[in-house]
């Protein structure tokens, strides 16, 4: 930042106006003491509460002071330009960041009033409780049946083969894949089409009966038809689960979510009802992003 201001004095003034504008937006910030986020960070019936969450990758301060609640049975979409930290934030919620070497998380994340980053917490039940679907479909190189049955097997959810069959069928049904694959459950999951693979991955996540589902750009590798199917599925799943979805597509965010959070350079800029954020953004950066000036 220093070098920029030294070499280009005119950028300083631009920066200042930018900062001033965001300051002027402050009156609508209902939680002034919580940082620079505009809009309401609260949800009606919060299941997840995050306070002052910071993530560091070695020296890099990846996300800064995030405060956000996620309500029960709501779909919240996290949007923002590439590298803004939305995926990083998502991966904090089920501690997937633990697998990244040199990653450090501070602050407080509570799911159902249990501190996720407590020293005594075991990540295994946490991840059973908070499922995750990834950007690229990643079925195991096993049969469709074994893909779904893997979670229940390791967690000991089924005591008989019949029970396991039951779980596999209901998970595939919930994911809307049952009719397409019921005759070929013993074939490899990697042989399915991209959209089917992603629904298989969703079914796999559902098989352990999670309470929260995190989705990291679940449709970015899919064609429009497959995307539509997944979006429809997300809408159905809302009845039972709490869902947080990271997406690059604003239309998708508008279609599937009730609330939207806009991230920018590791900061949570604005949160609000999806309709509000898209029709009447409070923050200039949000407006610039959704009108397509950058992103």
């Amino acid at each position: 930042m220093n070098t920029v201001t030294q070499s280009k004095p005119e950028s300083v003034s631009r920066m200042k106006t930018l900062i001033n504008k965001s300051m002027s937006a402050k009156p609508v910030n209902f939680q002034g003491e919580m940082g620079a986020t505009v809009g309401s960070i609260h949800a009606d019936n919060p299941r997840i509460t995050c306070r002052n969450v910071n993530v560091f990758y070695a020296e890099n301060h990846a996300i800064q002071d995030i405060n956000l609640d996620i309500g029960t049975n709501e779909v919240i979409s996290l949007i923002g330009p590439s590298g803004c930290g939305k995926s990083t934030f998502l991966r904090c919620l089920n501690r997937m960041n633990d697998t990244v070497e040199g990653c450090r998380v501070s602050g407080e994340i509570k799911i159902d009033d249990v501190d996720v980053y407590s020293k005594h917490l075991d990540v295994v039940p946490l991840r059973a409780q908070v499922g995750m679907v990834f950007q690229k479909p990643n079925p195991f190189p096993k049969s469709i049946y074994d893909n779904i049955a893997y979670g229940p097997k390791i967690h000991g959810l089924a005591s008989t083969k019949a029970e396991l069959d039951q779980i596999v069928e209901s998970s595939l049904r919930k994911a809307g894949l049952w009719d397409e694959v019921k005759d070929r459950l013993d074939q490899p999951g990697t042989g399915l089409s991209g959209g089917q693979q992603q629904r298989l991955c969703i079914a796999r996540t559902l098989s352990v009966e999670p309470e929260v589902i995190l989705m990291d750009e679940p449709c970015s590798a899919l064609d429009p038809i497959a995307t539509a199917k997944i979006e429809q599925l997300i809408d159905e799943l809302r009845q039972r689960y709490t869902i947080a979805i990271v997406t690059h597509s604003m239309q998708q965010a508008a279609r599937v979510s009730q609330r939207t959070a806009y991230f920018h350079l590791g900061k949570l800029i604005e949160v609000g009802k999806t309709s509000d954020v898209f029709t009447n953004p409070l923050h200039e950066l949000t407006q610039d992003y959704i009108t397509g000036r950058f992103g």
């Binding site: 089920n94 997937m96 697998t99 990540v123 295994v124 039940p125 946490l126 991840r127 059973a128 499922g131 995750m132 990834f134 690229k136 990643n138 079925p139 195991f140 190189p141 096993k142 893997y150 979670g151 390791i154 967690h155 991955c201 796999r204 996540t205 352990v208």
Partner: peptide, 23 residues
């Protein structure tokens, strides 16, 4: 991505290695 998938399901590291990575 395969490791991530297993971890996200709540598999322990040993389970991930033995049941996903090694096969």
């Amino acid at each position: 991505s395969l490791r991530d998938a297993a971890y996200a399901l709540g598999a322990t590291q040993a389970e991930t290695i033995k049941q996903i990575i090694l096969p």
